[in-house]
């Protein structure tokens, strides 16, 4: 074989190895979380881990490792965020795809990208200095750093994802659907809510689930802006501590290779699985709408 052909074959292998690396990284992350996480379990019982809401690993004598209140907290802020972000995001996506003039679109789309570019620590900062104090004043709370504060901030953070994906889905609805509706005498609004949105339904759901995934995995914003109380929250006006925040707070302080240290990896494994499942569901639903028309 000539040198040129050898180089050609070598290049091919090099690129293949680089691509396979991404599979290895994903497997490595999962494997590492399972391996380190499982080492916490001779000391902690599975039942306590998943069903106790008492997380107090540094208690003298009898430390407890229940993550139930963290899971509830994570879903509380995420669902709150979705209640705010879904109507706003889908509304904005529909506006962009069906109402806005090309000039408005040209301005709005980069603006939304800019919103996505704001680092989460800056959003958390806004939660501390503006949104939290504002909520405290409006609702008469002692402290504005609550689940509600986190939900509002996470809503802002997941808006760009929801808008972009939902707009794609709405845009992908064939023009013939719209024309048929107009031909039957429907106006723009009726066409949008009776024809276009139902046709884009699965894509919009995928957008919402992707936005949820983003909110579940967000760390800095909830760490800074939700008060970080480990107790089981009773509602949106309570401070909460999510899974992400717990890892962020405690990993820096625990000695390596203790039960407490490994238990944080176990929390990470649960978080990883939840976000993996959320992403896979979004992918399945998105794949369905992509091949529909």
């Amino acid at each position: 074989m000539q040198t040129r052909q050898l180089v050609d074959a070598g290049a091919r292998w090099l690129f293949f190895v680089a691509a396979v690396l991404s599979v290895l990284i994903l497997a490595g992350i999962f494997g590492m979380l399972l391996f380190n996480g499982s080492r916490a379990f001779p000391a902690i019982s599975w039942v306590q881990f998943f069903f106790s809401s008492n997380w107090n690993p540094s208690a003298y004598g009898e430390p407890s490792y229940g993550i139930l209140s963290m899971i509830v907290s994570t879903f509380l802020v995420t669902i709150g965020a979705m209640l705010i972000a879904v109507p706003l995001g889908v509304g904005t996506a529909a506006y962009l795809a069906e109402v806005a003039s090309p000039r408005v679109r040209l301005f709005l789309k980069p603006t939304i990208e800019l919103l996505a570019a704001i680092p989460s620590v800056a959003i958390g900062f806004i939660g501390i200095v503006v949104v939290g104090p504002f909520l405290a004043k409006v609702f008469g709370l002692n402290n504005g750093l609550t689940a509600l504060n986190g939900a509002i901030l996470l809503a802002i953070m997941s808006l760009p994802t929801i808008i972009t994906v939902a707009e794609d889905a709405i845009y992908a609805v064939p023009t013939s659907f719209k024309e048929a509706s107009y031909a039957l005498g429907a106006n723009k609004w009726i066409t949008l809510i009776r024809v276009i949105l139902p046709a884009a339904y699965s894509g919009i759901i995928a957008a919402v689930i992707l936005g949820m995934g983003r909110a579940i995995g967000e760390t800095m914003t909830v760490l800074m802006a939700t008060g970080n109380a480990t107790a089981m929250p009773r509602g949106f006006f309570d401070p909460v501590r999510t899974m992400t925040a717990t890892i962020a707070i405690e990993l820096g302080e625990v000695p390596y290779h203790t039960t407490h240290y490994y238990s944080l990896f176990a929390v990470g494994a649960v978080l990883f699985l939840i976000s993996l499942i959320v992403n896979l569901i979004a992918e399945q639903i998105a794949a369905r709408y992509r091949y529909k028309y």
């Binding site: 490595g28 992350i29 995995g217 760390t219 992400t244 890892i247 962020a248 990470g268 993996l276």
Partner: peptide, 10 residues
């Protein structure tokens, strides 16, 4: 889609 804190653990 992996949360950034998981990368921190890794």
């Amino acid at each position: 889609g992996v949360p950034s804190i998981i990368y921190g653990l890794f």
